[in-house]
């Protein structure tokens, strides 16, 4: 398994399969983050695509000062924020329609075999509530929460990405979590 640096070196020499390897390595993480920031799959997919294309085209400017994935996160977060700004926040009705879970795919039978129908329903409802709650947060709190909770980035990495101090990260997380607990209330006991 090649390291990111080795893959980048190959891409610079014109090897696109090396870029494909990088895309496949990070797409799932970036998609989860983009979905968290944007709240729907189409925008999340668009921003992930845009981020990879931007990364590819500006690879010459990647100096290796930060790790490749931190750099990629920054591009993705920027692409997602940009997209959110461009398209405006979606209204509630449209949003709820879009988060309708897709059952028929069946490739990832997540716990469905051991859940009874009412448990399944509860889990789906909880998922929709979580997404709704995240989308209600102010953008800065949402970004900090998504990077921390979904991606598990350190405060230092988040501060670096959001260009703020670690203390600011801590306070954005604090207020974001407080608000999430208010909204999700009894489900988080």
């Amino acid at each position: 398994m090649l390291s990111d640096e080795q893959l980048i070196e190959r891409i610079r020499q014109g090897d696109t399969t090396a870029f494909q390897a990088l895309v496949e390595k990070y797409q799932k993480k970036l998609y989860a983050v983009a979905y968290g920031l944007l709240g729907n799959r189409e925008d999340a997919l668009d921003s992930v695509q845009e981020a990879f294309v931007k990364a590819y085209r500006s690879l010459d400017r990647f100096k290796g000062e930060s790790s490749f994935y931190t750099w990629l996160y920054r591009i993705t977060v920027n692409a997602a924020i940009d997209m959110g700004r461009k398209q405006g926040r979606r209204d509630e009705v449209e949003f709820l329609e879009e988060v309708e879970p897709e059952e028929e795919k069946g490739e990832y039978p997540v716990a469905s075999s051991i859940e009874n129908p009412s448990q399944q329903l509860m889990r789906k409802e909880l998922g929709a509530m979580i997404e709704d709650a995240i989308q209600q947060l102010p953008a800065e709190q949402r970004t900090a929460i998504v990077l921390r909770e979904i991606e598990g980035l350190s405060y230092k990495e988040i501060a670096n990405l959001m260009r703020c101090s670690e203390g600011t990260v801590m306070s954005r997380l604090h207020y974001g979590r407080k608000k999430l607990q208010e909204i999700l209330g009894p489900h988080v006991q």
């Binding site: 494909q20 895309v23 989860a32 799959r41 998922g127 979580i130 997404e131 995240i134």
Partner: peptide, 19 residues
């Protein structure tokens, strides 16, 4: 809950279209 939910979402998505 948050981590599990978004991981599940990303796991369900057909990401082969990204490349």
């Amino acid at each position: 809950l948050l981590k599990a939910h978004y991981e599940e979402l990303a796991g369900k998505e057909d990401l082969s279209q990204v490349w």
